[in-house]
């Protein structure tokens, strides 16, 4: 006896969700089982996972192909330095503050760049990031073009023992990394997500169906900017040193992130996760090759884009129809083998 059901979950996703939750629990306990080196590595993966998921939400779902997200990473970093150098607060408090500031600044920025479309929008966001970089290079109290270091005393005030300090930063990274994925997942399952998917597929058609495109785009842009700013503050809490070129580095905070999303699979939740993991595997094994390593990355990106424009996850879904984090609805016949 078989009936038709409309459902979101798939047999795989019913297993994937609890497994993912278990994995997060296991990762949260990492300070008790991992060495500091492993903690650092997982933390860095989480930071890039967050940036990749957020950029995927912007470019893959909302159609906002921004190549200037490093504007908000750098801004977050500089908020951290302002808070630490001039207010003397616990640097962890700078993380939410960086999020709020980035959101506030993203509103007027959005008004400006949203006047542009497509390639013009992409270049516009890049220009905004350049403007940010040049502006911070003029602020001599934050080191200007020379850059500045976080005083050791402030790091010690956060937690006296090194293990505790590492653990705190790690948990913050884990929270932002998993938080970003969960945020994107829940957002896409909501009414906004439905609208976003419609915008992704056809902007004109979705507009004619009554979706207020500008408002949704603005909300997503500002939300992504806020989390990106928080990630920025955390990044420079680990780096201990900031300079305009490092803070607003397009290659570190935007190009690498785009690389991860594109090889993983743009417009899917799983894509950025796979792309991030693949990048770190490559880096762990090949980074010491110097220039050759960068050439391998480039060649790989070209190869994957040509062989599978939807990335590695696109290749998997088109062959098997698998989905770990389903956001769409499907018709399923129950009773048969699902």
């Amino acid at each position: 006896m078989s009936t038709l059901h409309v459902t979101r979950s798939t047999p795989l996703s019913r297993i994937a969700l609890p497994l993912a939750a278990l994995l997060v629990l296991l990762l949260a306990a990492a300070p008790w089982w991992a060495s500091t080196a492993t903690l650092r590595l997982i933390g860095e993966i989480m930071i890039y996972l967050s940036l990749a998921s957020l950029w995927n939400l912007l470019a893959g779902y909302t159609g906002l192909v921004s190549v200037g997200q490093h504007a908000f990473v750098g801004l977050g970093g500089y908020i951290l330095f302002t808070v630490a150098l001039y207010l003397g607060w616990n640097p962890l408090l700078a993380i939410p503050l960086a999020g709020i500031t980035a959101a506030l600044i993203a509103v007027p920025v959005a008004r400006l760049v949203f006047r542009l479309n497509g390639a013009y929008f992409a270049i516009g966001t890049w220009v905004v990031a350049e403007v940010f970089r040049l502006s911070f290079a003029q602020i001599s109290s934050l080191g200007g073009g020379s850059g500045s270091s976080l005083p050791i005393g402030i790091m010690k005030a956060m937690a006296e023992s090194k293990a505790m300090r590492e653990s705190l930063i790690y948990w913050a990274a884990l929270a932002l990394g998993t938080g970003s994925v969960v945020f994107v997942y829940l957002l896409l399952r909501s009414r906004i997500g439905l609208a976003l998917t419609a915008i992704r597929d056809n902007e004109t058609a979705s507009s004619s169906l009554g979706i207020t495109i500008p408002r949704i785009k603005l909300a997503v842009y500002v939300g992504v900017a806020a989390v990106t700013g928080m990630v920025g503050a955390l990044i420079f809490l680990q780096k201990l040193r900031i300079a305009p070129d490092a803070a607003f580095s397009a290659s570190d905070w935007t190009v690498l992130v785009i690389f991860m999303v594109v090889i993983g699979g743009i417009g899917t939740i799983e894509g950025p996760i796979i792309g991030t993991l693949l990048f770190f595997v490559l880096r762990e094994f090949l980074a010491d090759l110097g220039t050759l390593y960068l050439m391998i990355l480039g060649a790989l990106a070209i190869l994957i884009m040509m062989a599978s424009p939807k990335g590695l996850w696109g290749l998997v879904t088109s062959r098997t129809g698998l989905s770990l984090f389903p956001v769409g609805y499907r018709v399923e016949t129950r009773g048969d083998q699902g």
């Binding site: 060495s35 080196a37 650092r40 680990q238 780096k239 201990l240 580095s249 570190d252 010491d288």
Partner: peptide
């Protein structure tokens, strides 16, 4: 020996790698 790739971000990264790993 580690390459800083002429970037202060990467220099901080490889320094922590050398210390921790």
């Amino acid at each position: 020996a580690k390459d800083s790739q002429s970037s202060s971000n990467r220099a901080a990264e490889v320094a922590t790698e050398l210390i921790e790993k």
